[in-house]
Design a protein around this nucleic acid. Structure first.
Lengths: 166, 166
DNA sequence: TTTTTTGCTTTGGATGTCTAAGTAAAGGGG
DNA sequence: CCCCTTTACTTAGACATCCAAAGCAAAAAA
């Protein structure tokens, strides 16, 4: 039986290289901007929003960590004036965490890891190559996060103690 | 306008989904096996070696952390009998960290995140689709870790297919 | 032999992360 | 209106990761 799991192995190896390279580079970049990776991610998420703000809850879900963790991160970012807290008018339980000008400046010092590494090379590719790459990446992404959606709509927070199957 | 299929954005989004899904799932898996992600990675690296062992130095390089960090991780894994330390005969400065039977058992409880998520879907694809995916992933990986090379002589799970072009 | 380099550990401290418990606001009956 | 539940966030306490710097021991070089 020529099982030839070659392709599977090859794809896994490539995927691992992608993950590893990105992770290591992210750490390096964050350090060089005087930030840590989690803090950097908070700023990135905020900057990516149209209004530059989000609730701690939303941050927790998007980052996949507990709310308490976000609180701690925001505490420190706020102490450094990189974000600011503002109570919501409509629902006073909610807090809006907004990126400040200084926060955006800091982001500029640590541009997105993927951007840095990937974009330049990608944009040098021929049109059909770009199209194929996008198609492949989206396919892989769908494979990977498909089960994420249904299995744990809000997997981050405190709920899934139930974890272990059988 | 409208269409302007910004391929760069699309590819970045897909890449981010891949990274995020893998990271979150890895955390979940490690927890379900009573391990933490870094400890799990140590076991995975060891298990992927032909002899099931590596020096702390090699682990540090491959994981992208300081040696002191590896020492701490190995301390705990050793306390749990998941790995064992053994001084090298040929160079008594070196220590060999080897995975134990219990360590392999633990690994079995937390099978590789990518394996779990990805392999099944991948192997259901048509031959030409697999080929295209591999090609695309390898291309992306090469884009991402090209500059990484200097810092990581031995980066992958065993072998490295065709080296990256200069 | 003496010095330097190399591999690993120890120390001390910063950070991230979680769970559990607490506070405060909103919403729903009764 | 009051009580109860839910929701959003914070606080408190406990671990775990991670690092730089210093220490130690063995190998290599001078």
């Amino acid at each position: 039986m020529s099982t030839t799991p070659d392709r599977t192995d090859d794809s896994l190896i490539a995927l691992r290289r992608i993950l590893r390279a990105t992770e290591l580079y992210e750490r390096k970049l964050a350090r060089s901007a005087g930030l840590t990776p989690p803090k950097l991610r908070v700023l990135q998420i905020l900057a990516a929003r149209p209004d530059g703000s989000a609730t701690p809850k939303a941050l927790a879900v998007q980052m996949g960590v507990a709310q308490a963790t976000v609180t701690a991160l925001v505490d420190k970012l706020e102490a450094d004036r990189l974000v600011s807290r503002l109570r919501s008018e409509t629902d006073r339980r909610q807090t809006n965490v907004a990126i400040t000008g200084a926060g955006r400046d800091a982001l500029g010092q640590a541009p997105d890891a993927l951007q840095q590494r990937f974009v330049r090379a990608f944009e040098g590719l021929a049109d059909w190559e770009q199209a194929q790459l996008v198609s492949s990446l989206e396919r892989v992404a769908a494979m990977l996060d498909a089960e994420e959606m249904d299995a744990s709509p809000v997997l981050a927070v405190g709920d899934l103690k139930t974890g272990t199957p059988s």
